[in-house]
Design a protein around this nucleic acid. Structure first.
Length: 826
DNA sequence: GCAAGGTC
């Protein structure tokens, strides 16, 4: 029996399909899929199934000096025990083992991990390695026809990275955490990738804080030919003979303004017309995909999570790739053909197929790991996936369209007109050939109309305006810009960059979007800059990459590289020794700064955002236990302290971050003072008859509102009200419940909530209509739930127990892969 | 309870 090992289940199944010609059987072993046919078995790992760590005697942070970790041994332990067990079991029965992990450095290391597990069971079984860059019939067949050996040097390069990352990360993380007394969940982390990324954000914030705005002026005017007028802007030649629009001196600006405003015509002195080719974009790699998704409103994390689902379901290729060159065996015409006749994606495909020749664009990066992200040709039905998933799917399809579409052509028209020595310019642009924009509507194609004019022509001049402006500080990095910058600097990988950003949020280093650093983040970066500059610089990765190349080519060994690295860290700890308290004090102070709202009205100490033992947030006084003053916070979301201060109390306002339900809570002290009963609406349906209770609009101390009985707590009848907006009680009454109708004013459109009882009943009805817990799964809509129910799958339990292939054949439009992905999530 | 890298 031959055992074939891949990096992931998906790859295992596709390879089994190719090599068996579709005749494989699948079974499960310890919860791991095994594909079997004609004397062969294929099993997929789940990336790394073993990980590096220190021996257990090093695990108590307080018992071990961080510096001791530098020379501690590093062990490998199984992290996916069921997979390791399955691998052991299958290798016992194997006469030959073939490692078919991804074709990149990390894939080689993952292959080496599998190799070690197999070797442990059987010292003699032949183990070989196959390499292919995409799982297609041709590539896989020829890889298996010409098997190779595992590259132990390349795997060792990856191992060196693991060891160095662990030692540096763990030793410095523990040092900072211990110095500030931050143990448990709130430890203070540093690492080779997260810290340089954090420094990018912190450096930008420093620029913003240090920014000193400068005044300047810009001048605009209208030019007119016949009936058409168009805007022109004043410009001059600066000392480098470049065109400049900003005037830095007010007297000059006034002088230009006076002259222009005084005149009613300008003479055309230059007309420049040129056409520009606007080439179609290159295929999606992970970073460019995240960037495009972010332009249509998806966070990096959300975009990747949706892409992962679409990949698992078989609708698009692997979402983690650096490659921007389609492989030779991608046939664009065939793939376009799959979309012909599709109700919304078909027209574009058909128009593209009309071209004489189809040549896809290529990016600069051609790698061996995976193809660029593109649709597979299996098309989801619109009702099978959520709106968000469809939007991302369509983006991927249309990007593929764009890469095989024609270039667009723009016509630019620049007109320069003169008034005395002053010049005005106007830039027009017109899209002459839409080209790829027709199939890829995500880029702006805004035109700017400037009429045809001739040199020497007189144009009417009017509406001269002088605008006083000031220079703006640089903008914060957005998430996708950060990921691009990380890629440019060579830090992190396609699979980890977005996770690293999430990590910065989790650690309390950044808040909000675009990410803004906390005082803690500033202090961590400062401490690292002072004592361990290497960990916050991208140089560490650059050096590591060079060292890994040396190991891979046999010029250095794993021990050479890790020993050097250990020595460097020893030096850092030697310098760090005496400064522990100083660093700790600074970190602690910054942590407090991040939680401070302002002075306590009762004792003058600081009011801080705190967390109760149950995990809920509240505001407490730093003077506790002497001062027991507290204020409540709403129960949904994570508090973010805003820069705005309340005029009455001098406290910072608070915003509650809760994804789409994020809202500004305001000053917690004002909220507490506003607490109490508002207008009475009518009789309480529960106790009105018997005890005379009445319903009133109430505001709780936490700021949330409801309609409740005036006899609370004797009567607990209550109805929900929205968190945001001003509540207006109208004169209209509900006939059934005799309560006034309510209108909520927030944003542009007032919301007519109506009678609070009717509103609540409608809400409950909606809840029960779509009551199946299957809907909790991402990408499962009401329609799919219905279809599944017809096939006898009514809830999550039914789903997990069912056979994916059987459901797939029963339920139209649901693939076995998607069911497997749901099962995994359930 | 440390990192970063795979993958789910």
């Amino acid at each position: 029996m031959e055992l074939i090992i891949t990096e992931k289940d998906n790859a295992a199944r596709r390879i089994a399909d190719i090599l068996s010609g579709g005749t494989y059987d699948s079974s499960r072993e310890n919860g791991v899929n095994v594909y079997e046919w004609g004397g062969k078995r294929c099993v997929g790992l789940s990336g790394h199934v073993v990980g590096v760590d220190f021996p257990s005697e090093y695990s108590d942070w307080r018992d071990v000096e961080p510096v001791e970790l530098i020379d501690a041994s590093v062990e490998k332990t199984a992290t996916k025990e069921n997979i390791v067990a399955t691998l052991r079991l299958l290798s016992r029965r194997a006469q030959r083992v073939t490692i078919a992990t991804d074709y990149d450095r990390e894939g080689e290391l993952i292959g080496k991990e599998a190799y070690d597990i197999v070797r442990n069971v059987d010292e003699d079984v032949p183990i070989r390695r196959v390499r292919f860059s995409s799982i297609t019939e041709n590539e896989v067949q020829s890889a298996f026809d010409e098997p190779d050996e595992l590259d132990f040097d390349l795997a060792a390069a990856g191992e060196a990275r693991q060891i160095i990352d662990l030692i540096w990360g763990a030793a410095l993380t523990r040092f900072l955490s211990l110095s500030a007394g931050q143990l448990g969940n709130d430890f203070i982390s540093v690492g080779r990738v997260q810290s340089p990324t954090l420094k990018l954000i912190v450096d930008r914030e420093r620029e913003i804080e240090a920014f000193d705005p400068e005044d300047y002026w810009e001048l605009f005017a209208n030019l007119q030919k016949d009936e058409t007028s168009f805007e022109a802007q004043y410009f001059y030649r600066d000392e480098d003979d470049n065109e400049a629009e900003r005037v830095w001196d007010e007297a000059t600006a006034d002088e230009v303004y006076e002259t222009l405003a005084d005149r009613d015509a300008a003479t055309v002195v230059d007309v420049n017309r040129r056409t520009r080719t606007d080439s179609p974009p290159t295929p999606f790699n992970t970073t460019q995909f995240i960037r495009a998704a972010s332009a249509i409103g998806y966070s990096a994390k959300r975009a990747m999570s949706i892409a992962e689902d679409l990949y698992t379901a078989g609708y698009m290729t692997y979402p983690r790739t650096d490659n921007t060159v389609y492989p030779d065996d991608l046939d664009p015409e065939e793939l376009l053909g799959e979309f012909v006749d599709h109700p919304t994606l078909g027209d574009s495909a058909e128009s593209l197929l009309e071209a004489d020749e189809i040549v896809p664009t290529e990016g600069d990066e051609e790698t061996t790991d995976h193809p660029p992200i593109h649709p597979t040709g299996e098309i989801p039905s619109r009702g099978d996936i959520s709106d968000d998933e469809w939007e991302i799917y369509e983006l991927v399809v249309r990007r593929f369209y764009a890469t095989v579409a024609d270039a667009a052509v723009w016509e630019h028209l620049k007109v320069v007109a003169e008034v005395d020595d002053y010049r005005l310019k106007s830039n027009g642009k017109r899209l002459v050939e839409a080209g790829y924009h027709d199939v890829y509507p995500y880029f702006s194609t805004t035109e700017n109309y400037v009429p045809d004019v001739d040199e020497g022509e007189e144009l009417a001049l009017s509406d001269v305006e002088l605008e006083a402006k000031e220079t703006q500080p640089p903008r914060r990095y957005g998430q996708s810009r950060l990921i691009e910058t990380m890629e440019d600097l060579g830090i992190g990988t396609k699979s980890t960059r977005h996770d690293i950003l999430e990590k910065l949020y989790d650690r309390g280093y950044v808040e909000s979007d675009p990410p803004r650093p906390t005082r803690l983040a500033m202090a961590v970066v400062e401490a690292a800059e002072d004592y361990a500059d290497r960990i916050v610089s991208e140089e560490m990765t650059a050096q590591l990459e060079a060292d890994m190349d040396a190991i891979a080519s046999g010029e250095a060994t794993l021990d050479d590289v890790t020993d050097d690295s250990r020595e460097m860290l020893e030096d850092i700890f030697a310098n760090l020794g005496d400064s522990r308290d100083e660093i700790g004090d600074h970190l602690r102070k910054s942590l407090k700064d991040d939680k401070r709202l302002g002075p306590c009205p009762e004792c003058g100490e600081d009011l801080l955002v705190r967390r109760s033992r149950h995990g809920s947030y509240f505001i407490g006084c730093d003077g506790y236990p002497d001062c027991e003053n507290t204020l409540p916070l709403p129960s949904t979301g994570k508090p973010l302290i805003l820069e705005e201060e309340c005029e009455d109390h001098g406290l910072n306002e608070v915003k509650m971050l809760a994804g789409r339900q994020t809202f500004v809570h305001g000053c917690p002290l004002c909220k507490a003072e506003d607490a109490g009963e508002g207008p009475v609406l009518g009789e309480c349906p529960d106790c009105g008859d018997e005890h005379g209770g009445e319903l009133a609009v109430k505001t709780l101390q936490s700021g949330s509102r409801l309609v409740g009985c005036t006899r609370y707590p004797d009567c607990e009848y209550s109805l929900p009200l929205p968190r945001r907006g001003d509540i207006e009680v109208t004169d209209e009454h509900c006939e059934e419940h005799e309560l006034p109708e309510i209108v909520v004013h927030s944003g542009d459109e007032p919301w007519e909530l109506g009678c609070p009882i009717c509103n609540y009943q409608e809400f409950q009805a909606r809840e029960s209509e779509t009551g199946s817990d299957l809907e909790a799964l991402e990408g499962v809509g009401a329609k799919t739930v219905e279809k599944l129910a017809d096939a006898g799958i009514e809830d999550l339990d039914d789903l997990t127990e069912a056979d994916p292939d059987a459901i797939a054949s029963d339920v139209e439009g649901v693939s076995a892969d998607r069911i497997r992905s749901w099962q995994a999530k359930a």
